Amino acid sequence: MVKRQTPGSPERKFSLPLGLIAAIVLATVTAIWLISVMAGRPPANTAQENARALIGGPFTLIAEDNRTVTEKDFAGKYMLIYFGYTFCPDVCPTELQTMSTALDMIPQDKLDKIAPLFVTVDPERDTAPVMKQYVALFHDRLIGLTGTIEQINDMKKTYRVFAEKTEDTGASDYLVDHTSIIYLMDGNGEYLSHFSYGTTPEEMAEKLTRLIP
C-alpha cells in the first residue's frame, strides 16, 4: 500500500508508476485466488478438475430490472461471468470492453448460447439502476447483477472471488481490490474455463468459439 503524505513530512523524491502499482495489486489478488482454489483439497489430476469442483454453484441475486434471479434462470446457457464494480477506474472497464469485443467476434449461433454477466462486488453503491446504466455502455447482451451484501458475499465464496475495500478512504469514496478473472461456466453451471487479466479479445473469441459447441 502506498501511504498518503502527511502535512509537514518531506516531499517524496520518487514514486512507483501507477501502472506498476496496478500490476502488483492484480498479481497479489490473483495469487490469493489461486491459493484459495487449491488449498485444503486433495490433489486432482489437473488444475481444471480442481477448479471444476471448487468454483460455481447456486446463487440468488438481483438483476438490473429489479428481478430476483438465480442460477436456474441461466440453465442451458454458458455463463460468462466477471466480478467487478462500476466505480472501478480502469481494470473493470478494460475487461468488460474485452468481453464485449470478443462477443462481437464469435459466430451468432454460439453467441446465442452465452449469458454474459457482470456481478458487482460493491453492492452498497451498485444498485440495480446503477448497474443498468453501466452495462448499457458495453454490450446489449451484458446483464448486470447486484444484491444484498449477504447475497454478494455468498456468491463471492461460491466462485472463490477475492474483494475488499481499500483502507484510508472516505465513507463513500473508496476503491475495491478484487480478482480480475472472467469465468466461463457450462450449460449445467459447472466451471469450464477462465480468462485471466490481459487476455485479448481475439484470444477470448477463439477460446469461446472452440469450447462452445
Rank of each mutant, 00 (worst) to 15 (best):
L117N: 04
V121F: 02
L61K: 02
L96N: 03
A63R: 09
V130K: 07
L80S: 01
Y82K: 08
P129L: 13
V130W: 06
F87S: 13
F87A: 12
I114G: 01
R52A: 14
F59T: 01
L111R: 14
R125C: 08
I114E: 00
L117K: 10
E64Q: 15
K77V: 01
E124P: 02
K110Q: 14
I114S: 04
I55L: 13
M105C: 00
L117T: 07
K113W: 14
V121W: 00
L111G: 09
A53F: 05
L117H: 07
K72H: 06
F74T: 00
G76Y: 02
D65A: 12
T101N: 13
I106N: 07
A53E: 13
A128E: 11
Q108H: 07
E95A: 15
C92S: 12
Y85N: 05
D65C: 13
L61S: 02
F59K: 01
P107A: 13
N66D: 14
A128S: 15
P116Y: 00
N66P: 04
T98H: 15
D90N: 14
P93M: 06
T68M: 06
D104Y: 06
C88W: 04
G84R: 06
A53M: 07
G56E: 07
T68R: 09
D65T: 14
Y85D: 02
D90C: 15
A53C: 10
F83L: 05
L103R: 00
E124Q: 14
P123E: 02
D122F: 02
R125E: 08
I106M: 09
P58A: 04
V119S: 12
N66H: 11
P116V: 03
S100A: 11
Q97Y: 11
T94C: 11
G56M: 09
K113C: 12
D109H: 08
G76N: 00
L80Y: 01
T70H: 01
D104N: 15
F74Y: 05
A63P: 02
K110D: 14
T101M: 13
A63M: 04
T127E: 08
A75F: 01
I106A: 08
G76D: 00
K77S: 05
G56I: 07
G56A: 09
T68G: 04
T60E: 14
T70Y: 02
L96A: 05
T94S: 13
V130L: 10
L117V: 11
T60I: 10
T98Y: 14
V121P: 00
V69W: 03
A128F: 12
L80M: 04
M131H: 00
L117E: 04
M99N: 12
G57D: 04
C92Q: 10
S100F: 01
M131F: 01
T101L: 13
I62Q: 09
P129I: 12
V130R: 09
F59Q: 00
P89N: 06
T127F: 08
R125G: 08
F59S: 00
P123K: 03
A102R: 06
L54T: 15
K113S: 15
S100N: 02
D109E: 13
A51Y: 12
L61N: 03
G56N: 11
R67G: 06
R52N: 12
R67P: 10
A115F: 00
P93S: 09
K72Q: 11
I55Q: 06
A128Y: 09
S100T: 04
P107I: 09
P89I: 04
